[in-house]
Design a binder for these strands. Structure first.
Lengths: 158, 158
DNA sequence: GCTGAAAGCCCAAGGTT
DNA sequence: AACCTTGGGCTTTCAGC
């Protein structure tokens, strides 16, 4: 609830968790940082409590999982309805990510997976029916996440 | 290595891991599905091996972590250099996500966090220097991920 | 607020059906 | 291919500093 001013320990913990949230144990992390494993556990609990950590997500290769298509819809929603529309969009089968942009036009980017063009056109219709104006539909070649942003050690600690 | 044809058990495991990759233990997952905990562990190891699971990432509230700005750069890269440019972009401090699009123009979406406009203009310059043509720079209002795509139970199991 | 030890829980490995 | 058991490791809690 308070303004979370992160110290060096918190940032090292976040970095480790971003690299691998499931296999990096508190004990392992406590070796990198110079605190005990129980402290690591309490810090993580506090970060979750404060909302700095929103969750632990599994990154899936949708291609290998049988969903080879990844399509980005560029859409426009009336500002007054945008929030509701975005919420409803997240419930559609195949939608994996939605970005709300601070722009009058093209203010929503909707990312969708599917097995075939049928899926994509179906979702295009659903998005349209919700009230979006779909202005573009682009096939994704690849997407990359950078795990350790802003949480690198301040200075090389030799 | 083989084409991963996921069965009901795999999909239930993926769904659980997408919801919470750190706190959902094998034992817990084994209760949802009707298999033993050791089987869950082996299935997960296999999914990691096949590459269906690419990793376990921590979702961070960059605002609460002290990085209130989230900006999307719409860029164009020459197709021949695109792959290299994207790779180099991921190394820039503040870049959290990059999407490669199947389009001649505006074929790269680069998402960046920062504490102030200084950060953003700095990164804009860096992106430009790498060789991208930056055509737009949009402030993000919000971003949402949908954790349980395509892995819902086939039928409502009462 | 951090540490350290103890209790309980979890995971990985091997052997069995 | 899935299960069960077991040994080792991890997390959590709480007294103490």
């Amino acid at each position: 609830m308070t303004d979370a001013s992160l110290d060096e320990v918190d940032r090292a913990i976040l970095r480790a968790l971003q690299e691998d949230a499931r296999h990096h144990t508190n004990a392992e992390i406590s070796e990198r940082v110079d605190v005990s494993a129980s402290t690591v556990g309490k810090r993580i609990a506090a970060l979750e409590e404060q909302g700095v950590i929103k969750g632990y997500r599994t990154e899936i290769d949708y291609d290998k999982a049988g969903y080879p298509l990844l399509v980005l819809f560029i859409c426009t929603a009336p500002i007054t309805d945008r929030e509701r529309l975005v919420r409803e969009t997240l419930g559609l089968d195949g939608v994996v990510n939605v970005r709300e942009l601070m722009t009058g036009v093209n203010n929503a980017h909707i990312l969708v997976t599917g097995t075939a063009n049928d899926d994509i056109t179906r979702i295009a219709h659903q998005i349209d029916e919700l009230g979006f104006n779909v202005s573009d539909e682009i096939l994704l070649r690849n997407e990359y996440n950078e795990p350790s942003v802003h949480f690198e050690p301040d200075v090389a600690n030799e």
